[in-house]
Simulated scan of single mutants.
Amino acid sequence: MTLAYIGIGANLGDARQALKDAIVCLAQQVGITVAAKSSFYRTAPVDATGGDYFNAVVRIETSFTALQLLRICHHIEDQFGRERPFRNAPRTLDLDVLLFGAETINTEHLTVPHPRITERAFVLVPLIELDASLAIPGRGPAASFLAGVQDQRIEKFSSCKCSRLQEGGTQA
């Protein structure tokens, strides 16, 4: 089994629900075990158009190759109605293979580590939440890149739509 990290994002439709459903879809795949998921984060688009994104990262264990995993991610995106009218278009769901074990992959279809992994708060912050000592193959500790993305707006967001209940059952 290979330890891998997948970035999840959406900014069309019910984006929070899309993230939840995508995690379930990944977990339902034979050959994939979702080992951990980050909090959900709300972020401004980076090099993209449209409204705010909801983002998360999941750590998985998989028996698939990196290219097989990418094909599964694309299939799940398609099930959510993902369209690709232009680069960085708003999306119903985006699944990116961020890391795949300690491998460095550079093919026409897949680059791992993800080529912009160190440039985006919406990737780094949830990655570091999952593993504060994570090292990015060929680049070093993920935490060492946080200073470079500190100007990007990112806020932790509850994945639950429920309001808090105070003691006695009244809403807060």
Rank of each mutant, 00 (worst) to 15 (best):
I76E: 04
I76C: 03
E77F: 09
E77G: 07
E77K: 15
Q79V: 12
G81N: 10
G81C: 11
G81I: 10
G81E: 07
R82Q: 04
P85L: 10
F86N: 13
F86W: 15
R87F: 13
R87S: 14
N88D: 09
N88R: 10
A89E: 01
P90H: 06
R91I: 00
T92V: 07
L93I: 07
L93R: 05
L93D: 02
D94L: 08
L95H: 07
L99C: 12
L99F: 01
G101A: 06
G101T: 03
A102K: 15
A102E: 15
E103G: 07
N106D: 11
N106E: 14
E108L: 11
H109G: 13
L110A: 00
T111D: 00
T111V: 09
T111R: 03
T111H: 02
P113L: 05
P113Q: 07
H114M: 05
I117F: 03
T118N: 09
R120T: 09
A121L: 08
A121V: 08
A121C: 09
F122T: 03
V123Y: 02
V123W: 01
V125L: 07
V125W: 01
P126I: 04
P126L: 06
L127H: 02
I128D: 14
I128K: 06
I128W: 05
E129Y: 00
L130N: 10
L130F: 01
A132H: 14
S133F: 14
A135Y: 08
I136L: 06
P137G: 06
G138Q: 02
G138R: 00
R139G: 09
P141K: 13
A142L: 00
A143Q: 11
S144R: 12
S144P: 08
G148P: 02
Q150D: 13
E155R: 05
K156R: 13
